[in-house]
Design a protein around this nucleic acid. Sequence first.
DNA 1: TTGACATATTCCCATAAGAGAATGTAATTT
DNA 2: AAATTACATTCTCTTATGGGAATATGTCAA
Lengths: 120, 120
Amino acid sequence: MARAATTSDAFNAIAEPRRREILVYLAVRERPVGDIVTALGFEQPSVSKHLRVLRKVGLVHMRCQGRQKLYRTNAEAIRPLHEWAGTFERYWQHQLQRIKERAESTIKNARPISNPKEKS
Amino acid sequence: MARAATTSDAFNAIAEPRRREILVYLAVRERPVGDIVTALGFEQPSVSKHLRVLRKVGLVHMRCQGRQKLYRTNAEAIRPLHEWAGTFERYWQHQLQRIKERAESTIKNARPISNPKEKS
DNA sequence: TTGACATATTCCCATAAGAGAATGTAATTT
DNA sequence: AAATTACATTCTCTTATGGGAATATGTCAA
């Protein structure tokens, strides 16, 4: 099996850097596709394709207004990612603590660095 | 250009569901590869390959102990993801607010939808 | 040394991709 | 209706998978 589709879920969708840029850009307020093209400097077809992926996983909303389509980031859809990453928060706190402790003990018991290459 | 390598950054690495499972499993404490295989039920070569990806982007640490290798999640490396997603927090709060307000006003001033195309 | 155990790597294959170019489509304007 | 504007889709091509099977590497035990 090859890699999962970018449209399979939000995790896959945000793996692409340009899609993350688009999400940031569209977070403030809705914008037509042309604005994204101008602001971020990507090719228009590329933007449309990325928007399609983002839409399929619900990361952006769209509404039509005349001949333009207005897109906006659906911040709610990013929440699960935030929460998933947040479950590790307690661990990185512990790790910082451990690193700190190790650093302190290293300073206290300072001794010459042993050379692993010394044969005898 | 094809899709970016899973080893290009943490965002790409966590796009794979099994790698996320491994990260969760290894967050509590370090474990040998065999434990992961048993606990999650993946093929051993598959686990090794996923661990290699996770290692390349710094999401797990490894140390050798006899003939086994002990892996542990490096929670610190997940922090950037958490922070990136967190930048949208203010927007999802606003959106909830907006949705709430819209629902209320819709009930109060029920009237036909105005047509934006009206020129004057 | 030989064998068992724990991992890692390699090969093959089907799939999904993202970029670029060209083209299609719908809504506006003249 | 014809031209224009704003997007979306399709096609081609190169690249990166991720799984399964087989194999290689490294370490400890007898």
